[in-house]
Write a protein that binds this DNA or RNA. Structure first.
Lengths: 416, 416
DNA sequence: CGCTATTTGTTCAGTGGTTGAATTAAATGG
DNA sequence: CCATTTAATTCAACCACTGAACAAATAGCG
């Protein structure tokens, strides 16, 4: 069984609530609070916070500690009198997530522990357009093996993996279309079938989940950035993708194909787009379009260095580049206005290649939003660059694995 | 405490899971299955379906019957051998919801029982633009009193009320802006404070919830139409609003202001809109714009009869009207394409004034969607007229009350 | 007509997990 | 050094679900 669904059920039992579900839910509740707390909470604090009894919290914590999900921190210096509290933190030597990414000009792998720390990270730079999918995935497996070794060396146990791809992924984990990579109907699970560690199925969840890169990048922001909430994360790579986070959960759409913001029409009668439509956002704010408008079409810059080069030139005051960025910002602003009018989001994150360009994209975006968003007067919309850099998708992928464990620790505890 | 949040928690405990939560969740689970079942299920069938024991289901059902939420139906004729099953149905004489609506040219009230049947419905036609908010709400209270009397007469107990308003509503139930009604910062709860039955707070939920009309109309579709799923419900009234239903739950946005589709830019350099932007959808597909394009600007038709008049003329082959509808359909198609690209929805419902115009709006919409939605090739998008007519919002409002009871029956059971 | 097979619904002892109060543990402060 | 305070554990009680046995109600068959 392969799937690309990013479940994160927030401990909501869809089916029957049996006897044991009670403990299952409270394990998730307590572990979630420990993960979200700004400083290591005590059992007593958790009891007060959750409404459970101290007795129950103790029992639940005992299970979590036995399952290597939580460890006790050094007693914190306390203010007043009383027995000192023993702080609880997410274990740094328990389960970890393996994050993988295939992109147009690099492969990436990383390991993230329960606490969200990146414990290993490696990138393999190469133009993957001329390479066959099987070959590209073969190289990725080698990168994954290195990451696995690094995890072992640090006492971490890989609990699962997620792979980000710049394209549409179906429920079976197949890449239906990745235009910038030149992939179409690539059966990723099959191609990886020869590599056992990545293809096991544990506890109903496949060891490897394949997902859209923009979705995973948005997830990375969820950890790194300010806590849960609702935001739109725009990834400006060769294409333009977006991840939508609603109330702290990634929204994936009916078929997992949400966030295809690159082909939202900006000017319905504008220049034709290769998608078949006209005047799509990608024609105004896609990397190639910006480069063309900036007079750098022939420069043949690698995709991953182009944004920095543009930023340099803009910094230096290059009029053509400044104008190109302004136009891109306007187009992004028009599109984002649509999204905010529709979904009432309060934050927009500029990720991927847009992050370094944020200083120049932001002002025209905000101007458009201010003009076009009906509720802008009461609730200002924040536009900010992403907290993580280029390989956010890999980190988000690894993070999605550990987040699933935090959301449903029983799955992990049952394994031991 | 007033609030406009449409909670519908789908039995997901956010906080602590106490001892009694178990029963709470299973009450919701069983009641939900009874509500969703196509024919009255037996206890045994519910046990098989939910995974609970027959003993547990019996105990749960006993509670539900004692609370007047469920009654036993006549034993169904069975096929094979065995003791005949006693079917369980939602009680027709238990709690019911009161739905209210204030619109530009009418007030409406209705009563919906647990099973979703409309048990009372009344409309008061009047142009409410020249009337003060306090006066309008006063008339509404009289309508509500009639509805309450009708409910009593039928043995129904009103368990709460919801009010739909064509504008932006904040968390306090205040109408921040209802442009077509001419309301701004109207403190609806305060104005209704003199009418006790509508202003009680029971079990943490206010007796009256104020919400956007488009959101409630979308909810009505959720009951009447094909079961839960994800869709966009577009209400074409004087303004254009939309309700977004994701996975069977209304999505309300960070502040409850989602669905402001009327001011999504179609042509960013198009004619200025009163919202301050340019080329908004409302300028192309709003009722006034369609009438103007159809050459009926001076006809001064009441807003509620205009769509039918347009449909008549279109039926008769009036070229100007057909052209106007085509243009509106194109604009709607462009906008819907944006929404579908963003959210990956598979269904769009044309509600309110658009419902009778669906035969003419659909074809250009589908053409635009086909051209502009990246995933249209794999997953066709359905565009269909709404199941309910003009006063869908009132029915949806009443339905939201009973749906909340079905989603969390403990709230109701605790009252008795 | 009576017996058996079959399915529904209830009863009841058993169990898992939470509760609440009492108890122990470990610190501060006078 | 002892009273005070807060943290964590222990334990009997209790609530709700489980599983199996049992009672109820029907169809089919000889």
């Amino acid at each position: 069984m392969w799937q690309c669904q990013e479940v994160i059920p927030t401990a909501a039992p869809a089916g029957a609530v049996r006897q044991g579900s009670l403990r299952e839910l409270n394990l998730a509740l307590v572990l979630g609070r420990i993960a979200a707390a700004p400083r290591p909470p005590s059992r007593a604090a958790l009891a007060a916070e959750t409404g459970l009894t101290r007795a129950t919290v103790s029992a639940v914590v005992e299970d979590l500690v036995a399952g290597r999900l939580v460890t006790e921190a050094e007693p914190q210096p306390r203010a007043g009198a009383g027995r000192p509290a023993r702080g609880l933190v997410l274990a740094g030597d328990g389960p970890a997530g393996l994050g993988l990414e295939v992109n147009v000009d690099y492969l990436a792998a990383c390991v993230v522990d329960l606490a969200g720390e990146v414990r290993h990270h490696s990138v393999h730079r190469a133009d993957l357009r001329p390479v066959t999918p099987a070959d590209a995935l073969g190289r990725l497996v080698r990168l994954a093996a290195d990451a696995r070794a690094a995890a072992d060396a640090q006492g971490l146990i890989l609990a699962g993996a997620a792979l980000g791809v710049p394209g549409l992924v179906d429920d079976a984990g197949q890449v239906r279309l990745a235009p910038n990579l030149g992939w179409r109907d690539v059966p990723v699970p099959e191609l990886l079938a020869e590599h056992p560690p990545l293809t096991e199925v544990v506890d109903g969840v496949p060891a490897l989940v394949v997902d859209n890169e923009a979705n995973l990048a948005a997830l990375s922001e969820l950890h790194a950035g300010a806590g849960p909430g609702s935001f739109l994360h725009i990834s400006g790579e060769v294409g333009i993708g977006a991840g939508i986070v609603l109330d702290g959960a990634l929204y994936r759409g009916a078929r997992g194909w949400s966030g295809e913001i690159g082909h939202i029409p900006v000017r319905p009668d504008g220049p034709p787009c290769r998608c078949g439509g006209r005047g799509c956002l990608e024609r105004y704010a896609g990397q190639e379009s910006i480069l063309a408008a900036a007079g750098l079409a022939g420069a043949d810059l690698p995709a991953d260095t182009a944004p920095d080069r543009l930023a340099e030139l803009a910094e230096a005051g290059d009029e053509t580049v400044l104008h190109a960025l302004h136009e891109a910002g306007v187009a992004l602003g028009v599109t984002v206005s649509s999204v905010v009018n529709l979904l009432d989001l309060d934050t927009v994150v500029l990720g991927g290649g847009y992050a370094p360009l944020a200083p120049w994209l932001r002002p025209p975006m905000l101007a458009e939003i201010d003009r076009r968003v009906l509720t802008a007067a009461w609730s200002p919309v924040t536009v900010r660059p992403a907290a993580l850099g280029a390989t956010a998708a890999a980190v988000g992928a690894a993070g999605s694995v550990v987040r699933r464990i935090i959301a449903r620790p029983v799955g992990w505890l049952a394994r031991l």
